[in-house]
């Protein structure tokens, strides 16, 4: 199969996946034990209120009808209203999306840069004090809790220097950049150790490969070997790692949003859960699932470009 065909097929595969995700999201509502409308309304709500909630959420209709209605509305960008504030879920998400996207993207980019550089240096200097100190730092990074790392950055960097805000998302582009530095760093502290370990092992194995020895024998310098050859192999591993780690990444970003009081989706989700605001929970779950799907899709497509051996089926 050609690459274009593979990509088209991969895109088409996401359609049933999305349908499945939408079904799961809808069923979230029904996972509530007992009567969901009563649970949402609360113990003290009158029977009329509960009945109204039931109608607003379409709970009085059959499940297939609810499902089709939900899909139809979702396709038009209507994810219902918050049962607390009455605002449309779409607009709540739109408000909260930017800090989360910023955090995830800057955090991932930073983690990729840090882990590539550290692991390459570590592997090149295998079994030296430099390598050992990187390994020690990596183990340290894996063992400290994310919120603690964030608090330490606030205590040791933000407060003494006053360079970075300790909460919020700032004003304008430079304000955003400024307020994302420490959260992104926390993200990298949480995520890159695992990537460094995998990449270091990969680099060490790569340096033992025959083709590296043969490239040297043909006169290629270490720089050319690393940047023209090994980076491609490392990129494949990175892509896989990111696909696998996207779940932990989202979890970490929720914790970081809380630590740095970033007004992002994670915070909104935590609030919605504590208020049993189901439409908002559903909306954010949907957006998260979309993000995960997007990351996997992008990873597969990038891999198909990098790895000629991948069977394009």
């Amino acid at each position: 199969m050609s690459r274009a065909g593979y990509i088209a097929k991969r895109l088409l595969q996401t359609v049933p996946l999305m349908a499945g995700i939408l079904l799961m999201v809808l069923l979230l509502l029904h996972a509530i034990p007992g009567d969901p409308a009563r649970a949402i309304g609360g113990i003290n709500a009158s029977e009329e209120t509960v009945q109204k909630i039931r109608e607003d959420l379409g709970l009085n209709k059959s499940l297939p009808v609810q499902y089709i209605t939900y899909i139809g509305n979702a396709l038009q960008g209507d994810l219902g209203q918050s049962t607390r504030s009455g605002r449309s879920v779409t607009s709540i998400i739109a408000d909260r999306l930017a800090p989360t996207i910023w955090l995830l993207l800057t955090g991932m980019v930073l983690s990729i840069i840090v882990s590539s550089v550290v692991s390459a240096i570590s592997a090149r200097n295998k079994d030296t004090w430099l390598d050992y100190s990187f390994v020690a730092l990596t183990i340290g990074g894996i063992s400290i809790p994310t919120f603690w790392a964030g608090l330490m950055l606030i205590l040791l960097i933000a407060l003494p220097t006053g360079l970075f805000p300790i909460s919020g998302f700032g004003q304008g582009f430079s304000g955003h950049v400024n307020s994302i530095v420490l959260p992104a760093t926390t993200f990298a502290i949480a995520i890159s150790p695992v990537m460094i370990r995998a990449l270091r092992t990969k680099f060490i194995a790569l340096y033992r490969q025959d083709f590296v020895m043969m490239s040297r024998a043909a006169g290629l310098g270490e720089g050319a070997i690393l940047f023209r050859h090994l980076t491609r192999h490392a990129a494949l591993i990175l892509i896989t790692m990111i696909s696998v780690q996207v779940g932990p990444m989202i979890f970490v970003s929720v914790v970081i949003e809380k630590t740095f009081a970033l007004p992002g989706l994670g915070q909104a989700l935590v609030n919605a859960v504590s208020q049993r605001d189901f439409p908002v929970i559903q909306g954010i779950t949907l957006v998260t699932a979309l993000f995960v799907t997007f990351v996997h899709l992008t990873g597969d497509i990038l891999t198909s470009f990098l790895n000629p051996k991948m069977s394009l089926k």
Partner: peptide, 24 residues
């Protein structure tokens, strides 16, 4: 040695399958 590699002396290995970078 680095002035000999590929300039004066070439190497051919036992295992041609492993001698080429599979991603190029």
């Amino acid at each position: 040695a680095k002035d000999l590699r590929g300039r004066k002396i070439g190497l051919i290995s036992q295992e041609p399958g492993a001698a080429l970078d599979p991603l190029m």
